[in-house]
Design a protein around this nucleic acid. Structure first.
Length: 428
RNA sequence: GGAGGGUUAGUCUAAUGGUAAGGCACUGGUUUCGAAAACCAGAGGGAGAAAUCCCCUUGCAGGUUCGAGUCCUGCACCCUCCGCCA
């Protein structure tokens, strides 16, 4: 949510953000309702002050009591009007998107995203490379038919060495994220003057209540979420949702920042509106495993933190020796709570294209305002924190390993950095 | 699932239905060569150009009352015990 004071003082900026993000909210309506609300409130507060004054006397004067009662009724009669104005205002406020960061390209479709960097060499095979489902099926690493029988489409059983490879990948990523020396190296290389504090590994709950989900601004679109029947609970769609909400309604001392979590979780998505898309393989599933980074920082450090999370993503991809591109998303494609969003797309030789594996979301104080996650500054001042989230590794990079490390005979080499975790160097 | 106890600001704790007191921690100031101690002040949200003996804030939402942390109703969460259970 945006700061109402900011909207009052910068209506033009908000109007532009709405236009660029293709969100239809009339900012004048917001300002009008805000004004109306304050007028009613001021009047009610004046009456309330009068009432308080009377009842503070502690006398037994029946006439004065009658007068107080009258004021009370008057206040009560005004309440619905205030509630109505406030409810209308809230609906509009919740629709207003975060303000895009200055370098976010303005665009109306994802085609206007900008590739800003291409890294790594695409592998040259002396044969026609297969896609990951051909490779995996042949070796019995993925069973979607039986998964369909048990759970339906877009589910899979991962089996055998693929499971060990996946766990190795996550273990590797955990080791990177909790290693201060490596983080320092990454920061230095990216020329970022950020804290080198390690990420705290977390296994979060996979379900989340409506209130925190909504405060995180991630409940919508609801048709994308799984609801638990008969409970006020949803299956989370990303570890971000349950990590970012950890400190809801908390005020934290400045010296505890940055707060960094590396959360491993299975994520659940309905993939509504993607019928027929990516039906083969495991690129787009209702359920997938992911290791996510979540950072809470003070305002002045949040942008560098965003860049740092991207630098970490690039480091992980580099260590896995996977070719990728970095894409600056345009206003149409970054989410409503985002100020900036960057994707990393990995090269998939079996499909002969780049596919998204990572996202980095820079949220400024937009999420924290509803979450009421605050920092108590050394000066004693209380402010909202800034949030950042970014993928560390997920099952899409695992697909990329299958496709990029395939051999002529259909076997798959294990990336060097994962070999010590795996205990084997090749899957065949 | 059943029974009981609880929720007051960063934290710990008080308040016969009379308008939220205090300790610790924290921040600023006075003092000091500097610190500690001591003393003073501050510390959530909002309204207002501002002063402000202004409004709101005792888990949340209502109700009774001139007045609710306190009484009543509903809900949430935490703790203890019982039952079931990986």
């Amino acid at each position: 949510m945006l700061d109402l004071n900011f909207i009052r003082e910068n209506p033009e900026v908000v109007r532009k953000a709405c236009k660029d993000k293709n969100v239809e909210v009339n900012v004048d309506d917001v300002l009008g309702l805000d004004k109306k609300k304050r007028e009613i409130m001021t009047e009610m507060e004046t009456l309330k002050a009068e009432q308080n004054k009377i009842s503070r006397g502690g006398t037994e004067n029946k006439e004065i009591f009658a007068q107080a009662k009258e004021i009370k009724e008057k206040i009560k009669s005004m309440a619905p009007e205030l509630e109505k104005a406030d409810a209308e205002l809230q609906i509009l406020l919740l629709q207003l998107p975060n303000i895009p960061y200055e370098d976010v390209p303005v665009g109306t479709t994802e085609d206007e995203n900008k590739v800003i960097k291409t890294v790594g060499k695409k592998p040259h095979f002396g044969f026609e490379p297969k896609n990951h489902w051909e490779l995996a099926e042949k070796m019995g690493l993925i069973d979607k038919e039986r998964a369909a029988k048990v759970a339906g489409s877009r589910f899979a059983y991962l089996k055998g060495p693929l499971v060990l490879l996946e766990l190795s990948m996550f273990r590797f990523a955990f080791d990177v994220l909790s290693n201060e020396e490596i983080l320092a190296k990454i920061a230095k290389k990216a020329k970022l003057n950020v804290s080198t504090k390690p990420f705290v590994p977390v296994l979060p709950p996979l379900m989340i209540k409506t209130e925190p989900y909504s405060a995180m601004d991630r409940l919508e679109p609801r048709e994308e979420r799984y609801k638990i029947e008969g409970e006020d609970l949803w299956l989370e769609g990303s570890a971000e949702h349950v990590l970012g909400t950890m400190h809801m309604n908390e005020t934290i001392a400045e010296n505890e920042f940055p707060i960094r979590y590396a959360g491993y979780a299975t994520s659940f998505r309905k993939e509504a509106g993607t019928y027929g898309k990516d039906m083969e393989g495991i690129l787009r599933m209702h359920q997938f495993n992911k290791l996510e980074m979540e950072s809470l920082t003070v305002a002045e450090n949040s942008y560098e933190e965003h860049l740092f999370l991207i630098a970490i993503q690039e480091y992980l991809m580099g260590q896995l020796e996977l070719p990728y591109e970095v894409m600056l998303k345009c206003t149409a494609d970054i989410g409503k709570p985002n100020a900036r969003g960057v994707d990393i797309n990995v090269w998939l030789p079996g499909q002969n294209k780049y596919r998204e594996t990572h996202t980095a979301d820079y949220m400024t104080d937009y999420q924290a305002r509803r979450l009421q996650t605050k920092v108590r500054r050394k000066s004693g001042k209380v402010e909202l924190v800034h949030t950042n989230d970014a993928t560390a590794l997920a099952e899409r990079p695992l697909i990329a390993i299958l496709e990029n490390y395939q051999q002529k005979d259909g076997s798959i080499k294990v990336p060097k950095v994962l070999q010590k975790y795996c205990g084997f160097k090749i899957i065949k």
